[in-house]
Each structure stands twice: as structure tokens, then as C-alpha cells.
Amino acid sequence: MKLKELVEKFDLQIQCAAHRLEREIKGGYVSDLLSDVIANGRAGDLWITLQIHQNIVGVASLKNLAAIIIINGRQPEENTIEKAKNEGIPIMVSKMCAFELVGRLYNAGISGTR
């Protein structure tokens, strides 16, 4: 599934890098611990997190993740958006909590295992 389809299907608010939504999503990963994502995130993953700090962009870019979805309707910090713009990492916001968003993504066919 492409990022673009997700945005509509799950009512995500795009924060930046709207031009990079053609990318195919390979899988999903949920974590708020950056070290954990650095260790276990895989290229093409959709990263679901509550963290809004600018460091998330660095991690996403390092691991070549497809996009970041911030949950609970939290707004990313300004310098996070700024950095993501530069790195070309799409950031989206969902009103849902992690469990409910993941549940729906999972039911839509985005798996956590490959």
C-alpha cells in the first residue's frame, strides 16, 4: 500500500513532505524509544510514535523509514517539521492512540512481520 492511500483511509493530517507520498509501505513499527527504532526499524517501515522531538527525523532518515505517524493528535515541534522537510521524511498526525491506529493499519494489510 502507498502512503497516499493511507492518508485518506485513516484521516491523517500531513505535516510535511507531501510530495513523497508515492512510496510503498513495507510494514509497520511502533516505538517511542529511539534506540529501539535504530536497532529494529526496517527500510520502508511506517513508524508510529508519540515522540515529537526533532531526533525522530534523524532516526527515520538513518533507517530509511517510509514515514512517521504521530499519534494522540500530538503536534510535532516546529524544528521537527523543519528538519523533516529538509530530509524529505513525511510526518503525519493521527488522532487515534497507538493501539487503535495500528489495529486498523494491520487490518488493512500492513503487517509487522516480513
Binding site: V30, A98, V102, N107, G112
Partner: peptide, 21 residues
């Protein structure tokens, strides 16, 4: 051994709700 994503997906599929639901 599942990831947080996979585990959440599996339990949600079985009908368990999150906090808002």
C-alpha cells in the same frame, strides 16, 4: 517475540479495544 506493531495488530483483530474505544 512479536513486535509492538504485530502484537497490537493481532489483538485488535481479535476485538480488544484501545482506550478511546
Amino acid at each position: 517475540s512479536f513486535s509492538l506493531y504485530e502484537a497490537s495488530g493481532r489483538l485488535y483483530k481479535e476485538g480488544l479495544p484501545g482506550c478511546s474505544e
